[in-house]
């Protein structure tokens, strides 16, 4: 039964009010305060040029997008087969796999990051195994560099991809796969010509979610990355805490928020299309 417009607004209102009070107002206020500090519009324009021309800031923007993209690809490569297994699993196997996937959700960021340090450190588990087996002659650096950041973020963001893909895969009509097989398609063809296209909207949606979330990452790159892995959120924090340069922080916030909102708009369109397009 479709809800009346008023009823819809009444249902959304509490969440909207909360967002307005705790998110939109402070951000708006922060940006306004920071930029008015500069005095005139001309000053704001000059500052904007300075920010966009700064190598450190441009580097952070590129880093952030590069890391987010790599993580998204990694999460997709690991998540797609995992989601498929999950969509096929039943009973205990299903519960166990699901549990393993959502545990990072429920673990404190700090705890799971330190757990990674134990595993990835120079004297960590992986290096001991590699050394013990004679694959390497001295420890491999898996922490405090790009590799560490990617590993840590991939792990944290995997559940978002898996749950999105799982939903898309569960929605695939099994009879279509059977029909394809009956029409002479080999298993690879059933996958490539039917299953993959029918779950592609899940791939797009999951990738966008992961990419958007990755853009704003702060703690993981700060703890597991090196000096070359400065992401935007880290730089913003630094401008506020260390440099007390609020206008620069505000301008960077606008850039980050702009990229994020643009991607959200894209995500909205993709999920709308998926709902309307393949509805049975």
């Amino acid at each position: 039964m479709p809800l009346r417009l008023a009823a819809k607004w009444a249902l959304i209102a509490p969440a909207l009010a909360l967002l307005l009070l705790l998110f939109i107002t402070p951000i708006g206020w922060f940006i306004w305060e920071s930029l008015t500090e500069l005095g005139s519009l001309e000053e704001v324009w000059l500052e904007t040029q300075a920010v966009l021309g700064s190598r450190a800031i441009l580097g952070a923007i590129l880093n952030t997008n590069g890391i987010a993209l790599t993580v998204t690809v990694m999460v997709l490569v690991i998540g797609y087969p995992l989601s498929y297994a999950l969509s096929r699993a039943r009973g205990l196997a299903f519960s166990l796999v699901l549990l393993c996937i959502v545990i990072p959700y429920f673990t404190s960021v700090i705890v799971r990051t330190y757990a990674w340090m134990v595993i990835l450190g120079r004297n960590g588990l992986i290096n001991q195994i590699l050394l013990g087996l004679g694959f390497v002659s001295e420890p491999v650096d898996l922490l405090y560099n790009r590799t560490g950041v990617i590993i840590g973020m991939t792990y944290v963001l995997l559940p978002y991809m898996v749950l999105t893909l799982y939903a898309a895969m569960k929605a695939v009509d099994q009879r279509l796969l059977q029909a394809a097989e009956g029409m002479g398609a080999k298993p690879m063809a059933v996958f490539a010509k039917v299953f993959l296209p029918l779950t592609l909207h899940g791939v797009t949606a999951g990738s966008l979610i992961v990419f958007i979330l990755a853009l704003g990452f702060f703690i993981t790159p700060a703890l597991m990355g090196g000096p070359g892995d400065i992401m935007m959120a880290m730089l913003i924090e630094r401008e506020i805490e260390l440099s007390h340069n609020w206008p620069v922080a505000a301008l960077m916030t606008i850039v980050l928020l702009g990229i994020t909102l643009a991607l959200y708009a894209l995500y909205g369109r993709v999920s709308d299309k998926a709902e309307g397009g393949f509805a049975r």
């Binding site: 279509l176 029909a179 097989e181 296209p197």
Partner: peptide
Amino acid sequence: RDRGLGMVFQNYAIFPHLDVFGNVAFPLNV
């Protein structure tokens, strides 16, 4: 796939991601 049969399914099983041509061409393409 090796039985070479034509099949019409109860729910039609039309592939939603393919147009009519793509659907009808499917058994030939695979």
